[in-house]
Simulated scan of single mutants.
Amino acid sequence: MKLEQTVTISPDVISQEVSGETVLLDLNSENYFGLDEIGTRIWQLIESSGRLQDIYETLLAEYDVEPDQLLEDMEQLLTDIEKAGLVSLQPDA
């Protein structure tokens, strides 16, 4: 993962926020995925911008987190949801 990338949500994924958490449904596999509060915030930022640099800077401003820890956590989440086919990463245009 590089901050110069953009995240795009698969058109086959629908999401619903429930009590501060988000449930994702992959229509292809019919698998559900759950995101906690922080994952939900990242998903919201993906929906609004998709630029990893913007997402990273927003989260740094909103949460009391070390920059390296945030990068590690973002990379773990994005790797997981990309492997599941929920998103794709591209070079920033």
Score class of each variant (00 low, 15 high):
S88D: 10
I9M: 07
S49P: 03
Q53M: 11
S48Q: 08
V7N: 03
P67Q: 08
T40F: 04
E37G: 04
M1E: 06
I81Q: 01
E47A: 10
D92T: 14
Q53K: 14
P11K: 12
E82W: 05
E47I: 09
P91K: 14
S10M: 02
L45Q: 08
Q53D: 15
Q16N: 09
D26A: 02
I14Y: 13
L89W: 03
I42F: 03
I38S: 07
Q5D: 13
Q90E: 14
V18C: 10
T58N: 07
A84M: 01
A61D: 14
L3K: 06
L52D: 03
E57M: 07
L25M: 05
I81V: 08
E30K: 15
L35I: 05
I9G: 01
D80Y: 11
T40C: 01
T8G: 06
L70E: 07
D26Q: 07
L70F: 05
I14R: 09
T40E: 00
L3I: 09
D36G: 04
I42R: 03
L27T: 12
Q16L: 12
E37D: 10
I55K: 04
A84F: 00
I81S: 00
T40M: 03
L71Q: 14
T40Y: 00
Y56T: 00
P11G: 10
M1Q: 03
P11W: 06
L59P: 03
P67K: 10
L77C: 01
M1L: 12
I42Y: 06
V18I: 13
L59D: 06
S48W: 11
V13S: 04
S15T: 10
Q44P: 03
G34H: 12
I42G: 00
S88G: 07
L71C: 08
D64S: 12
Q5M: 13
E21Q: 13
E21C: 10
L52V: 07
